[in-house]
Simulated scan of single mutants.
Amino acid sequence: IGFIFAFVLMIAMAYYFARRPVKVYEQLMQEQQTFIQNASHEMKTPVGSLLLGTQYLDMLEQNHLSQEGKETLAQMKSETKYLQQLVNTMMLETLQTDDLKPINLSQSFDETIRTVEMVHQTTIHKLYKPDLMFAIHPLHARQLLNILLENAHHHNDEHVQVRVSAFQTMNGVQIEVSDDG
């Protein structure tokens, strides 16, 4: 009887000590989720104001802007919409992977490359077809390429030549960002 009691007591203690770190982890994850939701909620208003401001300028001042000003304003609108998507994505618990539809990666890549070219005053060589399709969330495609391009420029000198290539494979799409640095 003493052996059975000791055995049951050991199992109960093992369960208690094993469950305690899991509870702490779950609490930390919940606190992190709450923080992300609160922070993204607070960012929605300024991002919305930025987008509204760029749309206002586009609508009322379009005729008074130079070609470079129009391009810059269009880029500002595009980047503000991207920031708005990032904030909205942070507010979601998860992105639903069930409803992913193929997108034109080339168009998404072109937008991202255009932004990086403006920021770094450079030209990025595009080596991909204009109709490269793949099922991915558009925001993720843009984030992926942006991170790779920013790293290529950040870890090289200002005269680096960067190339982006992408092509279909049997398993999906292969994306390569290379530079001469």
Rank of each mutant, 00 (worst) to 15 (best):
I124C: 01
T72M: 08
F134G: 00
S66Q: 06
Q96R: 11
K70W: 03
Y128A: 02
Q121K: 15
Q121G: 11
S78I: 07
L148M: 15
V116K: 02
D99V: 01
L127A: 15
L95E: 12
K77Y: 07
D131Y: 14
L83K: 04
S66V: 06
D131S: 15
L95K: 07
S66F: 03
N104D: 03
G69S: 14
L105R: 02
Y82E: 07
L148T: 00
I147E: 10
T72C: 07
A141P: 01
L144E: 05
S106N: 06
T80G: 11
I147K: 14
D110Q: 05
L100P: 00
Q96E: 11
T89Y: 09
T89M: 10
Q67V: 13
K81G: 08
K81I: 14
Q67M: 12
K70D: 01
N104W: 04
V87Y: 11
M90K: 07
N88F: 12
D110Y: 04
E111K: 09
M118A: 11
N88S: 10
Q96D: 12
E79M: 13
L100S: 05
Q143P: 02
T94Y: 09
S106P: 02
E79N: 13
L100E: 04
L100C: 05
F134M: 01
P138D: 05
L132E: 01
A74L: 13
A141D: 04
L92Y: 06
Y82S: 08
M91S: 12
L105N: 00
I103F: 02
Y82A: 10
I147Y: 13
T115A: 07
S108T: 01
Q75D: 13
A74N: 09
K70Y: 09
R142L: 04
H137Y: 15
G69T: 14
T115C: 00
I113Y: 03
T122V: 04
T80D: 04
L92V: 08
L144Y: 04
F134R: 02
H137W: 07
T80K: 02
L144Q: 08
N146S: 13
K77F: 08
M76G: 08
E111H: 05
V116N: 00
Q107E: 12
H120D: 07
L132A: 06
T123K: 12
H120T: 02
Y128R: 02
S106L: 01
I113L: 09
I147T: 12
E111G: 00
L83F: 15
L148K: 14
L105V: 00
D110E: 11
V87G: 00
K77M: 15
D98V: 09
A141N: 02
Q67Y: 09
T72N: 14
Q67G: 10
A135T: 00
K126Y: 06
L145I: 06
I113D: 05
L144V: 03
H140M: 13
N146D: 10
L100A: 02
E93L: 09
Q107V: 08
L132N: 04
T112G: 08
M76D: 14
Q75T: 06
R114K: 13
E117L: 01
L105C: 03
E71G: 10
D98P: 02
Q143C: 08
S106D: 02
Q143S: 09
